[in-house]
Design a protein around this nucleic acid. Structure first.
Lengths: 224, 224
DNA sequence: TGTATCCGATACGCATGTGTATCGTAGACG
DNA sequence: CGTCTACGATACACATGCGTATCGGATACA
C-alpha cells in the first residue's frame, strides 16, 4: 500500500525475476533468493508440503538464514503473495496505460490479449495463484488480501474494456464489469486446464488467448 | 468404472450423506465414517494439512481403524475423490435424464440451473474440488483422473445444451461444447468467489445461478 | 460353552520439521 | 590493524506424524 513498500517489493522482484539478482547486496540479496526459492518450492510441493528446509536448500542456504530474515513460513508466504500480486497488477496497469498510444494499429482482441499477457509468467504462477485462492477459502487474512487484489484487477480490466468499447464503438452484451470478470475467469481457467494437461508455457498462453478471444467475440456486437 | 465399484461407492455415499449412516454395518460402516470425516477435514485443513490422526478423531476412531481400512492417506484421498466426482456426475446425469419429462414447463435458464444445482453440496464441495484441481496440477495420476472426470462432465452438459437448443429453437453464438465449458467455468468460479467472500451455501448457489443465467442470456440469440 | 476370527485399540520406533540458542567469521569502521 | 557487529551456520530440544506390530475383546459359529 505505502510507497516505500512498493519500492521494496520492486527491489525484491528485480532479484526474483533473475534480471538483476546480483543487484542487491548482502541481506536483501539473501531475502530475494529465499523468496525466489520459496516461489518455486511452493508451486511444486504446495504451501503445507514445502518445508523451510527445502526452501533454504533450494536457495543455497541453511535454516539459519531463513529465521534470520523471516519469523515464520507464513510470513514469507504472505510477503511472496504480495509481491506476486503486486507484480501482476502492475503489469496490467502498464499495459492499460500504454494502450492509447498504439491502439489504432491493433484489433480489440489483440489488445485484450496483450493486456492479460502480462499477468502470467508461466506454470509456476498458475499453480501459486491456485494455492493462494485455496488458502483464501480457509484463512480470513488471506481472503481479505485476495479479495482486495482481485477487485482492483477487475477494476483495471473493466476500465480497459470500457475504453475499448467506446473507441471501437462496440456494443457489449453485458455490463463492462461483468465482461471483465468473465474474461479474467475464462483466462485463468484456460491456464489451469492447460497446466493439468501438462501443456507447456507457450501452449498455455495460446490456449488462454484463443479461449478469451472466442469469448470476446461472443460478447460483442459490432455496431455496424 | 466397473459395476461393482459403482455399487460400492453408492453404499459409501449413503453413509457419507448421512442419509443412512446406520445402514451399513461393521467394516463398511467404519469405512464410510472415516471417509465422511476425511471429506470434512480435507476441506478444512487441506490434503497435506490433514493428519490421519485428525481424520480418525473426527470419525470417532483411532489410527488403528484407519490402517485397517486404508493403506495410506493417499489411497483414502483417491477413493474419496472418486466417490465425490461419481456422485456429481450422477447428479448431473439424473437431471439430464429427467429433463424431457418436464421441460415444457420450464424456461431454459431454470433447466440449466436445475441441472447444475446437483453438482454442489456446499462449501465443502467447493473447497475439495479446488484441492483436487490443485493436486492434479502436480500429480500425474490425479491429473488423469481429473481430466477424465471433467471431460465426461462437459460431455453431459453439452448434450443437455444441445437438446435445449433444438427443443427451444435457440441459436447459440458458440459451439455447444464451448458453451458447456463456459457455463461450468462460470458456475465454479462463482462458487469459489462466494466461498472466499464467506457467503453461506444459499447465497453461494444464488450467485452461481445468477451469473450462469446472465452468461446464458448473453450467449443465446432467440430465433424470433 | 468353547473357540476361531476379525477389527479396532494400543504401543513402539523412526523420520521429519520447527523454532531457538549459540557459534564463528567476514566485512565495516575507527 | 584491531575490534565490533551483523548474519548465516550449527547444534539442540521438542513436537508431530507415519506405519507397523501386537494386543484384546466382541461376535459368529460349532
Amino acid at each position: 500500500m505505502s510507497a516505500d513498500h512498493d519500492a521494496a517489493s520492486r527491489h525484491i522482484w528485480q532479484a526474483i525475476d533473475g534480471i538483476a539478482p546480483e543487484g542487491a547486496r548482502g541481506r536483501e540479496r539473501t531475502k530475494a533468493r529465499l523468496m525466489r526459492a520459496a516461489y518455486e518450492v511452493f508451486a511444486e510441493a504446495g504451501l503445507d508440503g514445502a518445508s523451510v528446509e527445502a526452501i533454504c536448500e533450494r536457495a543455497g542456504f541453511t535454516r539459519g538464514a531463513f529465521y534470520s530474515n523471516f519469523s515464520t513460513k507464513e510470513e514469507l508466504f504472505f510477503e511472496l503473495v504480495r509481491a506476486v500480486t503486486d507484480r501482476k497488477l502492475e503489469a496490467v496497469s502498464d499495459r492499460v496505460r500504454g494502450l492509447r498510444a498504439e491502439d489504432a494499429a491493433l484489433t480489440p482482441n489483440e489488445l485484450v490479449q496483450s493486456v492479460l499477457d502480462g499477468t502470467v509468467e508461466g506454470l509456476l504462477d498458475v499453480v501459486l495463484m491456485s494455492e493462494i485462492r485455496l488458502r483464501a477459502m480457509r484463512d480470513d487474512e488471506a481472503a481479505r488480501a485476495y479479495l482486495a487484489w482481485a477487485s482492483s484487477l477487475v477494476d483495471r480490466v473493466e476500465g480497459m474494456i470500457e475504453s475499448l468499447a467506446t473507441s471501437y464503438d462496440l456494443r457489449l452484451r453485458l455490463p463492462a464489469r461483468d465482461v471483465a470478470r468473465l474474461v479474467l475467469t475464462v483466462w485463468e481457467d484456460a491456464l489451469i486446464s492447460a497446466a493439468i494437461e501438462r501443456i507447456d508455457d507457450d501452449g498455455m498462453r495460446r490456449r488462454a488467448e484463443s479461449r478469451t478471444q472466442q469469448l470476446a467475440l461472443a460478447l460483442v456486437d459490432t455496431a455496424s
